[in-house]
Simulated assay, not measured.
Amino acid sequence: MSRGSHDASCRPSKEPAVQSPESKLTPSSYGAVRRTTKGEKTPRITQSYGAVSKAIRGEGLLDRTLGFYGALAAGLLVALAAAITGFILLGDSWFQLLIAAALGVIFTQFAFLAHEASHRQVLTSGRANDRLGRFLAAGIVGMSYSWWMTKHTRHHANPNKKGKDPDIDFDTISFTEESASEQRGLLALITRKQGYLFFPLLTFEGYNLHFRSIKSLFAREKITGRWVELTMIAVRFAIYLGAIFWMLPLGLAVAFVAVQMAVFGVYMGASFAPNHKGMPLIPADVKLDFFSRQVLTSRNVRGGWWASALMGGLNYQIEHHLFPSMPRPHLARAREIVRAYCEEQDVPYAETSLLESYRIVVEYLNRVGLHARDPFDCPVAGDFRRR
């Protein structure tokens, strides 16, 4: 990364331009976090993190902001109603693709709100948050809330940790060199250029998210709210697809769905990718304290209120991981407290612009992709050369 890609006020803020998946958090690379003075074996950072939590609570930054989320929900419902009205009034017109794109954005914003409900950021009661999140995810977006909860909880517990974080598991894209080296044929060809293909591939991510989440509801293990979610998803798609294919000619209807899903996939992927991709990976056998684990593997995106609105608060990824239940409006103030603490403790605090974060992600994925086997290379000849 370029020198100016982090905020200069946090001293050790040099993040690698491209973080290789083999760049591990060894004792030498995070020694500043584990020891504050030479020879001191008790990590002061773990003890003093309690002071940060106390400051956060003291300023009321974990208190609910019902007014904000009420206004946000009302705004999204108005936007959805406007899109539906526009859809009805336009009729058989290729301008409907603008409505499709708008729906892709609106559904993504509802997904952000469902994500916040899953973290107990919205309402005071855990059950109320779950009911809201399930309705938003399954009833409006068309995805399984229980699948998201399971996957995302595992991610928050061990971000960027090999074998623990599902977000770095292979899924068309390889996030580790080991995964890239295992790809063959067409997948190997894609993997070798996966950085450049990342955003084009995201146009299909909407289908992938819907398919994987709905598939999870048919698993044999016990799933909370299985039939409620299946019912809501079925009703949602029946109304959504029924209206589109009834109101529009077949070709236009197919294009409408394709545009909506493409915008949804790109928007979702482009909002979540800057958070951890290209940051250090934690080997399975390395243990870090909670604070170090969350800060060293997360990246913030500069931009203030507009970035927060655009990304659903995900631009404050470090603070979100440290205080997952913190409402979105309080994350900006929490950033000031956490940054000051990082500066005091010499803890790297990664923060960059949105465009720079995309550059990092693309270069990182391309570097990982170089470890994919050349699909046109002969395995036997390769083995002979390695000897």
Rank of each mutant, 00 (worst) to 15 (best):
M1N: 12
G4L: 14
D7C: 12
R11S: 13
P12V: 13
P12D: 15
S13L: 13
Q19N: 14
S23H: 15
L25T: 03
S28W: 07
G31T: 03
G60K: 06
L61S: 01
T65A: 10
L72V: 02
G75R: 09
A79M: 08
A82K: 04
T85K: 13
W94H: 05
Q96C: 03
T108E: 13
T108A: 11
Q109M: 11
L113Y: 04
A114K: 03
V122T: 02
S125M: 10
G126D: 08
R127C: 11
N129T: 02
A137F: 14
A138M: 02
A138F: 01
A138L: 05
T150D: 11
T153M: 08
R154E: 07
H156W: 05
A157V: 12
P159A: 06
P159W: 05
K161M: 13
P166H: 12
I173D: 04
S174Q: 14
S181K: 09
S181Y: 08
T191E: 09
Y196E: 14
F198Q: 00
L201S: 00
S216Y: 15
I233Y: 00
I233R: 00
A234I: 01
R236L: 06
L241H: 08
I244N: 01
F245I: 03
F245N: 03
F245Q: 02
P249A: 05
G251Q: 09
L252A: 10
A255E: 03
A255D: 04
F256W: 00
A258Y: 01
Q260R: 03
M261N: 01
P274F: 10
P274Q: 10
M279C: 14
A284G: 04
D285I: 01
Q294N: 08
T297Y: 06
S298K: 09
R299W: 05
G312D: 08
Q317S: 10
P327S: 05
A332M: 12
A332P: 06
R333I: 07
V338D: 05
R339A: 15
Y341M: 08
C342V: 09
E343L: 14
Q345G: 07
T352W: 11
Y364M: 15
L365I: 10
L365Y: 07
V368Y: 10
G369E: 11
R373I: 15
F376I: 09
P379K: 15
